[in-house]
Amino acid sequence: MDGHDFALWEKRVDALMVLCGAKGFFTVDGLRRALEDMGEDAFEKHSYYERWIAAVNQNLIEGGVYSLEELGTRMEEIAARGPTYGEAQNG
């Protein structure tokens, strides 16, 4: 038994983390710093990949890859696509 399979969105978070790291957009230490800065209660409130996508996003914002306004606008658009991940996952 090797545990559960991860959800597609979680695998995508993992892939984004590895690829952005390999391309030099941030370092694993930058991700860890962002995770630690979320505070202790983030560990209780959010799942592993929820915390990691937050850390990836934090580092990309800090690195100027896109702006908060672009992110916020896009997240609103995505919410309008449909009520499930399956419907919203591709723009």
Binding site: I53, A54, L60, R74, M75, Y85, A88, Q89
Partner: peptide, 8 residues
Amino acid sequence: WQRMEIAV
């Protein structure tokens, strides 16, 4: 968080 993943 899924919306954030899609957006990023």
